[in-house]
Each structure stands twice: as structure tokens, then as C-alpha cells.
Design a protein around this nucleic acid. Structure first.
Length: 570
RNA sequence: GUCCUCGUAGCUCAGCUGGAUAGAGCAUCUGCCUUCUAAGCAGAGGGUCGCAAGUUCGAAUCUUGCCGAGGACGCCA
């Protein structure tokens, strides 16, 4: 269905028919694109430039031979050679009508091909610490990961969505300490002050309140308190996720990974593969590190696989480091047999990529693709000022604060209007007050307008025949061809979104497609010739409905990928 | 100090991994609702793509060096 790829294949065929000694790399060098400027045809290729360079032949000769072969295909109306070596191709109306029939037959599958070939992908995202509800710092990764997962699973990948729960270590200790503090206050009707290491935030008071009512509760069972705190915070997070429309297949517990002895397994393998030694690290640069003193410690040779330095596996007190834990977790993922492991991290974890990749290589998973997508920070802007969030004061804007005000659709759409690794300014005012500025409405409006014209046609009892059309008799004018051309990009957009793991491309395409439709719609306002319901000409109406129907489907399928709803009336 | 990301219109950002005259929204200005939804459309102005070299038929895109913004460089998670 990708006419750009198909045309490229035709060009390559024509080359192989006519020329010899073309080297292997040619398939990667020849491009086939829809040119920005219409005067360069429907499809433009750099083929002549590429071939003339390889064969050292005259460009005009090559183009003559090539054009001669290509024009034997009835779908090409004409082909032109233009300096410095482009081949511009023009399709016939018959081609476009035929293409229209084909994509119409594809229905909802149009654009979605089996790119993944059943490759198994594990995609881990959010993984916010279970110390409180989600705040807007988690928002972007959550939505990005969810949409990327959906995109991959719709294109032939077998996707597992995973959340890693850090339910081990000092933060969980502190969580339980905080809980105990609240419990004591309740029991003694006191109001003791919190200490520095405790978690601020009212939600922990509520959790304590709930716990005190439960019959089996024992304030001195610290392990139980930890468990209880983690579980309840995780419930808060799960509620936020479900309100956002984000779901997971697995919640993997760090504690369980340790309890199951995976850490020891990993240690043995690394030791056996000679990646472990006791040694000293250099003093870290840049930061004030007065506390630093050289200590002999258990190190992993991550520098053998591209990391800048070796990394510590065990703390001075004998506990495994967070990194060691992560190695075990990635080992756990890898032995589950994924072809690819995707992690979605905040940009502040960029320095982490090399060491985790190194650990997978050291553990022997050379064929497991390891991909990290970084999400840059979201700046929350209110009244033209960036709102600073501070962990110490427990001063966070929560997902549950803004979601009811803005709505899931607008929020999800907006979070994907930026490339994942670019900063994103999230302006509350704009999302709240000037909702019509929001592009999600623009796309939904296009959908609603098409629904509207369908309703009217029904009322008028005009046949909305969206079946096949005869390619010989039907006519097309330029605005209609332009719409079909827009649609022809859809498979390409999905392919590149998948290839680069960049769902924002879908969003930009939808906005563009909606825009092209809106233009077309408005054409009929000023010129009766372009009224969609052409009363005198049922065949023309037929073609138009065929096009609009596909546009509507693509808009719906695109918004579906984002889990944004469509409306028949707005 | 080292490393990573970014720098495109007044503002917020795309730019199909090297293609032809660099695009969109917002803001400013001008038109368009007795006619299929004006949450819309058409048009105007607005640019040394941070700066400078290099690579080549061709650079916003690749390389190097500066300048500027953010982040990372712990036995924290």
C-alpha cells in the first residue's frame, strides 16, 4: 500500500532491466518521495543522480532509457528528467482511482502492515516510585509509552507493557517510617513534627487512617508497614494510570527479583564471564564530593562495552546498589526471551544507558536489541510562569489535579505534539481557557464534519455507496487527487513512526490530514462545483464519499492509536 | 573539567534521517456564514535555520570548533 516504496521497486526493476554493474548499495541510495512542490510531480526520485555517479554515464541517456521503460506501465502519465538528476513521475487518474479502490478494500487495516513480524518487544515505562500518586513529571512518559506500545502492537509486534516497582531500599524504609509517624499521631492524638527523611503529602495520612481501622494491623511489624505503604501507593498510581487510559501487562517487583535469587544468578554469570573485580574508582568530577574517599569495592567492568567508567555493584554496607538491581531486572527481562527491550526514561537518566546496555552484553544477550527513548522534562506553565516543583516540600502538581480539568483527550493529544526528546511547555491556561486552540479539536472536528455530511446524505436519501468505483468512467479533479495524495502518505507515516519509535509523527500527520480536509470542505462553500453532495452527478458524489470515508477511517484509527475519542457531533 | 540533549518566524514547535522556493499553530493585518458544522477557510506580513569552517551536484539535516540553554557525571533511588 506504500506507493512510494512500490514506485521505488518499479524504478529499481527498470534499472536492473537496462543496466548492469549496479552495485549493491543502490537500493539504499535511491529515494522516492512526495515532493513538497507539486510542480515536481506526484513522486520524485534522485535515481538519475545516483546511477550516473555509479555508471559514469550521461544523465540524459539514462533518463531516456529509464523513462522509456517506466512509461510502459499504464499508471504513469508522464515522467520528466530535471537537473541535477531528478526523475519526476506523474500518475494517471486511473492510478489514483485504482489506489482509492484498493485502500477502500483494506478498510481499517489501511496503513497498518506487519512491520514487526511477530517480534517480541518488552516496553517498560512510567515505573514511578511507589511513594505517592503520579505527578505531571510522570505524565509524558506514561502517554508516550502507552501510545508507542499501541502503535507497535498494531503493526505486528508482540508487545508486553511493563512497570517496574522499586519496592526495596531506603525510600521504602522512609515510607514506612512516615506511615508509622502518622499512626503514632493518630493513636496518641498528637501532632509530632515530621523529620527530614519523611514523605510530605496528605495521601499518606489517609493511608494511615485506613490502616488503623483494619483489624490485623500491628504498628510494630515494620515489614508489614512497608508492604502496606507500597501497595496503597501503587493503588493510587494505578488509579491515575487508569484515568489516563494507560494500562500495563506486568508490574514487576524489585523485591521479588531479589527474593527469587536473581541477583545471585547475575553475580555468578558476571563472575564467570570475568566482568567482576574488587577495585577502586576515580574520584567523581564536577560535584562537591568532600565525603568521597577511596574504597575498595565490588565493580562491574562496564567500560569494556562502551561505558565511561566501571560501576559499583555493592555498597559499603554490603547491600546491592540500585544499578545492580537494575542489572538483575534487565537479566530477568532478557531471559523471558524478548527480541527487543525498550525503556522509556526521563532525560536525567541518559547517563544510565551505556551501563545497562553493557550489562546485557556482559550477560551474553548479544541479540537482544536494547533501545532507550528519553522523554525531556515538561515545564508546567501557569500564568506565563514555570511552576517549580520540589520534592522536599512535597510540592507537586498531581495528575489527579489537572486531569479532570483538562480531560483525557486533550491531555493525551497535547503530550504528543512534541518530539519525545524535546522540551515541552505545558501551558495550563491554554489548555483550560482557549480550548479551541488545541489541535485535538481540529482533528476531531474534521471527523465530525464528515459524520455530518453523511447524515445529510442519508436524509436526502442520496446513495452513499462506498463500494468500488469503475476506474475507467469516474472523473477526478485536482482537489480530490490532493486528498488521495494525503492519504497515500499514511502507510509511510506509520512505518517511520515505528522505525524511529516516534509516535508524534502520527499526531502531525493527523493535523495535516484534517487541515487538507477542512480546506476541501470550504471549497464547496465558495464554489458549488465542489459541493460534496453533487446533486447532478451521483458518480462524482460516490467518489467523494469514498475518499471522505477513508479519511474518516484514518482519522479514527490515528486517534485510536492515541486513545483519543472521536465524536459524530461537536 | 568530561559527556549527553537542544538552539528553526515575535511566541510554541514540525521538518519525511542529505533534496528543489524552509513549514504549521498562536499573535498582527485583510477578506469569507440567506447555501453540506465558522471549533472552519482563503490571503498578507514576519527567517543570515545560534556563529564559523568543512564534506558534495545539493546541508536546517552529516563532521569539527566556538557561543548559548538544560541535564548527567555517588557506595540516591
Amino acid at each position: 500500500m506504500n506507493i512510494y516504496q512500490e514506485t521505488k521497486n518499479k524504478i529499481l526493476d527498470a534499472l536492473y532491466q537496462n543496466f548492469k554493474n549496479l552495485n549493491e548499495g543502490i537500493e539504499n541510495k535511491v529515494t522516492c518521495e512526495q515532493p513538497k512542490n507539486k510542480k515536481f510531480g506526484d513522486i520524485s526520485s534522485n535515481v538519475i543522480l545516483v546511477v550516473s555517479k555509479i555508471l559514469k554515464l550521461d544523465k540524459k541517456n539514462i533518463s531516456k532509457i529509464l523513462i522509456n521503460t517506466l512509461l510502459k506501465n499504464k499508471y504513469f502519465d508522464r515522467a520528466e528528467f530535471i537537473e541535477p538528476g531528478f526523475l519526476n513521475l506523474y500518475f494517471s487518474n486511473e492510478f489514483w482511482l485504482n489506489f482509492l479502490n484498493k485502500i477502500s478494500l483494506k478498510g481499517d487495516k489501511f496503513g497498518f502492515s506487519n512491520l514487526g513480524n511477530n517480534r517480541k518487544v518488552n516496553i517498560e515505562f512510567v515505573s514511578a516510585n511507589p511513594t505517592g500518586p503520579l505527578h505531571i513529571g510522570h505524565l509524558r512518559g506514561a502517554i508516550f509509552g502507552d501510545v508507542l506500545s499501541k502503535l507497535l502492537s498494531k503493526t505486528g509486534f508482540i508487545v508486553t507493557k511493563e512497570y517496574y516497582v522499586n519496592d526495596l531500599g531506603t525510600q521504602v524504609e522512609n515510607l514506612a517510617i512516615t506511615l508509622k509517624h502518622h499512626l503514632k499521631n493518630y493513636a496518641n492524638s498528637e501532632n509530632l513534627k515530621m523529620t527530614e527523611n519523611m514523605y510530605k503529602g496528605e495521601y499518606l495520612k489517609k493511608i494511615a487512617e485506613k490502616l488503623i481501622k483494619s483489624p490485623s494491623f500491628n504498628i510494630n511489624d515494620f515489614e508489614k508497614l512497608k508492604e502496606y505503604a507500597v501497595k496503597n501507593n501503587l493503588d493510587l498510581i494505578k488509579k491515575d494510570l487508569s484515568d489516563l487510559g494507560v494500562s500495563f501487562n506486568n508490574f514487576i517487583s524489585e523485591k521479588k527479583i531479589h527474593d527469587n535469587g536473581l541477583m545471585e544468578n547475575v553475580y555468578k554469570i558476571l563472575k564467570k564471564n570475568d566482568y567482576i573485580y574488587n577495585g577502586f574508582l576515580e574520584k567523581p568530577k564536577g560535584k562537591k564530593s568532600e565525603k568521597w574517599k577511596p574504597v575498595k569495592q565490588l565493580l562491574f567492568k562496564s567500560s569494556l562495552h562502551g561505558d565511561k567508567s566501571d560501576r559499583v555493584l555493592k555498597k559499603e554496607n554490603g547491600d546491592w546498589t540500585y544499578f545492580a538491581s537494575d542489572v538483575a531486572y534487565h537479566y530477568d527481562k532478557a531471559i523471558r526471551g524478548y527480541d527487543e527491550i525498550i525503556n522509556i526514561w526521563g532525560a536525567d537518566h541518559a547517563g544510565y544507558i551505556d551501563r545497562v546496555r553493557a550489562s546485557l552484553l556482559a550477560l551474553g544477550f548479544k541479540n537482544t536489541l536494547f533501545t532507550v527513548k528519553l522523554c525531556q522534562i515538561v515545564n508546567l506553565i501557569d500564568k506565563k510562569k514555570v511552576i517549580k516543583m520540589s520534592k522536599r516540600d512535597g510540592n507537586f502538581v498531581l495528575v489527579s489535579d489537572i486531569l479532570p480539568k483538562i480531560g483525557k483527550d486533550v491531555l493525551r493529544f497535547f503530550m504528543l505534539t512534541r518530539k519525545n526528546d524535546a522540551h515541552l511547555d505545558f501551558d495550563l491556561e491554554k489548555c483550560l481557557n482557549e480550548t479551541n486552540e488545541n489541535p485535538s479539536f481540529y482533528v476531531q472536528y474534521a471527523y465530525a464534519r464528515i459524520s455530518s455530511i453523511k447524515r445529510i446524505a442519508e436524509q436526502k436519501k442520496q446513495q452513499i455507496n462506498i463500494k468500488q468505483i469503475k476506474t475507467k468512467s469516474a472523473s477526478l479533479s485536482i482537489p480530490e487527487i490532493d486528498l488521495i495524495k494525503s492519504l497515500s502518505l499514511w502507510p509511510k507515516i506509520i512505518e517511520s513512526s515505528v522505525a524511529y519509535r516516534e509516535p508524534h509523527r502520527i499526531v502531525y500527520f493527523l493535523i495535516e490530514l484534517a487541515g487538507n480536509f477542512h480546506s476541501y470542505w470550504s471549497l464547496g462553500k465558495s464554489d458549488n462545483k465542489y459541493k460534496i453532495l453533487a446533486e447532478q452527478n451521483s458518480e462524482l458524489t460516490h467518489v467523494r464519499f469514498l475518499i471522505l470515508n477513508i479519511i474518516q477511517k484514518v482519522l479514527k484509527n490515528g486517534l485510536d492509536l492515541l486513545s483519543v475519542s472521536v465524536k459524530d457531533k461537536m
